[in-house]
């Protein structure tokens, strides 16, 4: 299939970006990133600068890939990362617009690659249970209601790709932060530090320059792991509870 790619090119964070058009010949069984490989091969053969994009596992779990395809993070296919999107979702003659994730807290590094270290900062503010190696009790000493364990797992499937932020018209990281918090708060192990965790992670989330959630729900729609905005509602509840009834 013959495609026109309209790709955002930006040399580095300091320079201005612009769109450039490319023609590429793809096959329907290719993954989207393999199609970009083909383009890059062409560019390298012509001694031009290949398009920089982040990718690693190419099986939808590492969360490295980060591009907006025709206005949608990871493309419009439900529950699919860009690396798992295949070209059979497109047809010959299509023009595909590819841009980087856009949000102030995700500065562009080059072309389609952005810096998502703000997510690490949020995690470091409390996305853990403080237990040193060797301090644990027997695994079965802490029974967990199956429904709670399942819900914790649903929240924990977040791959930290940042599609939620990219999809959000406010550049908010509430889905990411709330999923991280809800994962731990659904488990008995997570209760001890619950209040501190909630307050600290929200504080750092704000500090990193993310926007405020206005319950648009685009994050949930574009999340490749289909994480629910129920997490956001839960975080709002936890936060209020922590402020009103927490120790500090």
């Amino acid at each position: 299939m013959n495609l026109t790619l309209k790709i955002w090119r930006q040399k580095n964070n300091g320079s201005n970006g612009h769109f450039e058009n490319y023609q590429v010949e793809a096959e329907e069984h290719m993954s989207f990133l393999e199609m970009l490989d083909v383009l890059n091969q062409q560019l390298i053969e012509k001694k031009q600068d290949p398009v920089a994009f982040e990718h690693d596992c190419r099986e939808g779990i590492c969360g490295a890939c980060s591009m907006v395809i025709n206005g949608r993070p990871h493309g419009s296919q439900t529950g699919t990362t860009a690396c798992q999107l295949h070209m059979r979702a497109f047809k010959t003659g299509d023009t595909i617009t590819i841009e980087p994730f856009r949000a102030n807290a995700f500065p562009v590094i080059k072309d389609l690659a952005v810096d998502r270290s703000s997510f690490d900062a949020i995690m470091q503010a409390g996305g853990y249970i403080s237990v040193n190696t060797g301090q644990a009790v027997d695994g079965n000493a802490i029974p967990v209601e199956k429904a709670d364990a399942d819900e914790a797992f649903d929240s924990a499937t977040c791959i930290g790709c940042g599609a939620c932020v990219a999809a959000c018209p406010n550049g908010s990281a509430m889905l990411f932060t709330s999923a991280k918090i809800n994962h731990l708060s659904k488990l008995p192990q997570g209760q001890v530090e619950h209040s501190r965790r909630v307050k600290n992670m929200v504080r750092v989330m704000d500090k990193e320059g993310f926007g405020k959630c206005s319950n648009v729900g685009a994050c949930e729609v574009d999340c490749p792991k289909e994480i629910s905005t129920d997490n956001i509602a839960a975080l709002n509840r936890y936060y209020l509870g922590s402020v009103l009834f927490g120790q500090d």
């Binding site: 907006v68 025709n70 949608r72 419009s76 102030n104 018209p169 926007g211 574009d222």
Partner: peptide, 18 residues
Amino acid sequence: ENKKAKGSTYAVNTYDNG
């Protein structure tokens, strides 16, 4: 504040995600 947090917008806009 949200406008600032978003920075720039996308070239293609869709409304099927919100």
